[in-house]
């Protein structure tokens, strides 16, 4: 990985994001279909994709509405799924340039995929890569949603096409490269475990999420899984 945040630029970000943007377009299609089936109409899903711009949150909100849940529950589950963007925003903040509007634009275009693509390792983020990748994902997500809303009847049931499995597969593809680190040993509460810290955090996070799923509303297990990162607190850098 590069030592400074200046090595990669807008073009590199735009190139790196293409395969993910194609995948996100596919998710946009399935979101448009699902949102329409949930009674959200044709315009609201597209506006939500342009503003909320977060797949898992929008899927959660649509499924709550489809199950007959209250608007407040739908909005709250979307916001809980997006609570991770508070710490994620904090991580990119030191590397952003420009004034209020530029920072707001970068913040809006910060999503899981653009955040990962723009990461330079050792807690550094490249703002130009973030902007390019974020814009590519934003356009793909809106166009996909529009396509799903317009051609929903042709596409049919997203589950029949296995699109619900495409989401965890994408997240797994984002997760795996993060598990390889220089550190081979994790120290937790005085115990030395022979696995890198990200792998331990991932295992704990997944366990928290699965244990909480039957007992908490949608979104809570994922927010709670973030607590796994406290194992990094005692590590000397």
């Amino acid at each position: 990985m590069a030592e400074t945040s200046g090595d990669r630029g807008f073009r590199e970000g735009a190139v790196a994001v293409v395969p993910m943007a194609v995948a996100v377009f596919g998710f946009g299609l399935s979101y448009g279909v699902l949102a329409r089936a949930a009674g959200m109409g044709g315009v609201a899903p597209v506006v939500m994709s342009a503003t909320t711009f977060a797949g898992s949150a929008q899927f959660a909100a649509a499924s709550v509405l489809q199950a007959g849940g209250a608007a407040a529950t739908a909005a709250l589950s979307a916001l809980m799924l997006n609570a991770r963007y508070l710490p994620i925003g904090v991580t990119v903040a030191p590397w952003l340039e420009g004034g209020f509007w530029s920072r707001l634009l970068h913040a809006h275009l910060t999503v899981d995929e653009s955040w990962v693509i723009a990461a330079e390792g050792t807690g550094r983020w490249n703002p130009r890569v973030l902007l390019a990748a974020g814009m590519g994902l934003w356009i793909a997500w809106i166009l996909g949603t529009l396509g799903g809303v317009l051609f929903g009847n042709v596409i049919g049931d997203p589950a029949r096409l296995g699109l619900d499995a495409a989401f965890p597969a994408l997240f797994l593809a984002l997760l795996m490269p993060q598990l390889r680190t220089r550190e081979r040993v994790t120290e937790v509460a005085g115990l030395r475990i022979g696995a890198p810290p990200p792998a331990i955090a991932a295992l704990i996070g997944a366990a928290i999420a699965l244990v909480l799923t039957p007992f908490t509303p949608a979104g809570v297990p994922i927010v709670a899984a973030g607590a796994a990162c406290v194992i990094g607190l005692r590590r000397r850098r």
Binding site: P87, Q178, P198, A201, A202, G205, A209, G226, I231, G232
Partner: peptide, 15 residues
């Protein structure tokens, strides 16, 4: 914060 991404991504995979 470096461990936040693997923890949340793994939770999203599991869910």
């Amino acid at each position: 914060v470096g461990l936040l991404a693997p923890a949340l991504l793994a939770a999203l995979v599991a869910i």
